[in-house]
Design a protein around this nucleic acid. Structure first.
Lengths: 239, 239
DNA sequence: CGAGGTCTTGAAGACGATCAACAAACGTGG
DNA sequence: CCACGTTTGTTGATCGTCTTCAAGACCTCG
């Protein structure tokens, strides 16, 4: 089975055989995490970064009174905390949403790559930049989109990312989270999230049921979300 | 006068003399921008990155109906669009808030640095990671903080960043933006922003007047904001 | 000095939160 | 395979925050 990180990178640029093997060689071990288990905890000092090989995870922050905000969702091929390579200390937690198979990249190995493979380094840097780009889109949504638009936008984003990773089934895709978590991502209460899902269903745009999203009307959903995939930077070019 | 980028980096790690001169040598020219002028436009393909030497700028996105969201504020020493080095195409605009003196770094030169100076490359990468970290804090605020808390948090962040850059005057700092722009940053209407400023004043926490913020009660403001500066990653260590 | 931008305040209304109660689904042990 | 507790989802009612609309004051700069 192909390393999904390789595919993730090759979607954006070409990798040489040596670069591919350098990446493969940087994995120290592979571990499984149970649903709801933390891959990394907030505030922790870490010396490795985690790549998801299988499963879903999210990054989140918790405020004083326990209110939680999910800042990103991650799927196979995503380097959930590559930024810890240079930041050293986590400024948020990472939790498994489902059972996850995760590859560990010791920072020491990443450092070696950064010394020896400038192009590969740029590509890893790129991954963190795409992350940041998605963050900006998220911010824009939280600040200026309606709750409904935000939900639609999230569905559009997840559909596209999963599709590119070959994890969709027609217009249906897995999204294994609870409505509570969905609310935590959108900055909404569970109750309101539930009502919004009902509305999307009634508008025949999308249905969310038993951990799957089925898009009924892609164009309509995109329009409601004002979805423009540019921010995902899915094109390949020399970097 | 010292290049504020050098200070920005040396706050996080040590630079060798060669690294410093490599950075200095990567500047192609310095240009002035007028207030409200765009340094870069959304969607543009660029081949240089902009470093602010003097002045204030912001990054923003505009939605279909003209609603605007500001995703970040920038001051002297900030590399406002370093990410365009690898993303190539802008996914947002950058506008000057005041007159700005800006240094251009051609991507070609940045590429050379990335080929020759691994450590310096990691430090530039780090800058973009800190940006992303601030984005996550922003998202958390938009989703889970009260409007009042968000405003207080923004004041705390700006105070600390300006203080570190030596641009504060005691507990007073320049923040040359209109209430409209402040609202665009917080995801609020101008009207509500105005009322919130009134409340912070009445609570004797901070006053915003003629482009300056005066913090009256730092501890109180921090508490209201639940401000924890970890996410700014202001510590120095080997990277 | 006038015009446009910025700030301020009031009033009405929309959107989403909270509280509450119940239904459905799930998983665990008997 | 069922009984039971826990988690997840659903719906109604009420309340608060923030938006929108509107109008007037202030200010700044040609």
């Amino acid at each position: 089975m192909k390393n999904p990180l390789i595919s993730q990178l090759e979607r954006r640029d070409t990798l040489s055989p040596e670069e591919r093997s350098a990446l493969e060689g940087a994995i120290s071990k592979v571990k499984e995490f149970a649903p709801d288990e933390d891959l990394v905890r907030d505030g922790e000092r870490v010396n490795q970064s985690n790549l998801i090989l299988e499963g879903f995870a999210c990054r989140y922050k918790v405020l004083g009174d326990g209110r939680r905000q999910i800042t990103a969702f991650h799927l196979a091929g995503d380097f959930v905390d590559l930024h810890s390579f240079l930041l050293k200390k986590m400024d948020h937690g990472v939790a498994a949403l489902t059972r996850c198979r995760v590859a560990f990249f010791p920072h020491e190995k990443l450092r070696e790559i950064s010394e020896r493979y400038p192009h590969l380094t740029r590509l890893m840097w790129l991954l963190t930049l795409i992350d940041a780009s998605a963050h900006r889109e998220w911010i824009t949504g939280m600040g200026r989109r309606s709750a409904e638009g935000r939900l639609a936008h999230l569905f559009c984003e997840m559909y596209l990312r999963l599709d590119v990773a070959g994890l969709t089934d027609g217009l249906t895709f897995p999204f294994p989270i609870t409505q509570h978590e969905l609310g935590d991502a959108l900055g909404l209460s569970v109750v309101h999230t539930n009502r919004l899902l009902g509305r999307l269903r009634k508008l025949h745009l999308a249905t969310f049921l038993s951990n799957k999203v089925k898009i009924e009307n892609w164009e309509g959903l995109k329009e409601l979300a004002e979805f423009d995939p540019t921010y995902l930077h899915l094109n390949s070019e020399p970097r």
